[in-house]
Design a protein around this nucleic acid. Structure first.
Lengths: 159, 159
DNA sequence: GCTTAAAATTTCAGACTTGAAATATTCCAG
DNA sequence: CTGGAATATTTCAAGTCTGAAATTTTAAGC
């Protein structure tokens, strides 16, 4: 390791750090705004929206563990959110035929209808909040972010 | 509004949405990994690290409301985190001379020393996690993200 | 001086989140 | 078929987070 190598490494890690802080700020700003609007317009929260979104894309339902893995949150966390959404009549737990341990969760008709209203507004809001980026920059950013992660977390679920 | 305009608008908002989902995934992956490592290596959490980081950059201390604004979290949230960090001897509350409502919070010597250890590891980790990006991509991404937000949240605090 | 609005902070209830422990069930080697 | 590892989920304690209400102090107008 020469002094020159150290300098280059250090500069790169500083750049990575700067990028991370930017990313964090954009993320927090957008999330804060989305949270506020979901609360005011639909009386719901971001985690609830996320769960409903995952189930909307999987009409046949998902096991709790699948939900947990896709959303990258803990098992216990999903339990509580699904509990509350179930109380509200937006989803329900079904038994899995071959396995009495597992439960399959899916949206009710009411849940589907409600989510469609929310999703339409959500897409508009996101586009508004990221409005500073034209189509080309947006495309390029999305692509670059796809290659950003070193971890083996890049699953093919965003086709 | 012609059909053509609608199509272009729709395509752009879909691209924004795709970007937002990518950003969310990168953010969650990196945060999950950083949280895990902070817990295992230092027995601390991301929110605690964030508060200490803000105070490290402001050695003279910050008011609770300044902390809250900079970190984009609620006032009540900061209160609890500062309480616990104070119990641990990493920071302390001082009276503000001219204003008996306000309190200034700053790191203790022990807090400074502890944060410096954490920050060094943190920078290494972030760079490792974003290792898929070379210096040029990193720079460009950071710049693009800086122009992403439409909201008036882009303060000049990341020099 | 008095009153009232504004500002700084804390408190609070409720939701979200984690990691670990507890439960229940399935799978499998012997 | 039986004991134990593995899997699916829930429960739990503790911390994080929010938005609103309460508290305390300051500032401003009259």
């Amino acid at each position: 390791m020469t002094a020159r190598t150290h300098a280059r490494t250090d500069r790169t890690s500083k750049a990575h750090l700067r990028l991370w802080l930017r990313l964090l700020k954009v993320n927090r700003s957008v999330e804060a705004e989305l949270r506020e609007r979901l609360r005011l317009e639909f009386g719901t929260t971001l985690p609830r929206f996320d769960v409903m979104s995952a189930l909307y894309r999987n009409p046949k339902g998902m096991k709790m563990s699948e939900l947990s893995r896709m959303l990258m949150v803990s098992n216990g966390n999903v339990t509580g959110i699904v509990d509350r959404l179930t109380e509200d009549g937006f989803m329900l737990r079904e038994a899995v035929p071959g396995d009495r341990r597992a439960a399959r969760v899916r949206l009710t008709q009411r849940g589907i209808a409600e989510f469609e209203r929310q999703a339409a507004a959500h897409e508009t809001w996101v586009s508004e909040l990221l409005g500073g980026l034209g189509p080309e920059d947006t495309q390029r950013l999305a692509d670059d972010l796809g290659t950003a992660l070193t971890l083996p977390n890049a699953e093919r679920d965003d086709a």
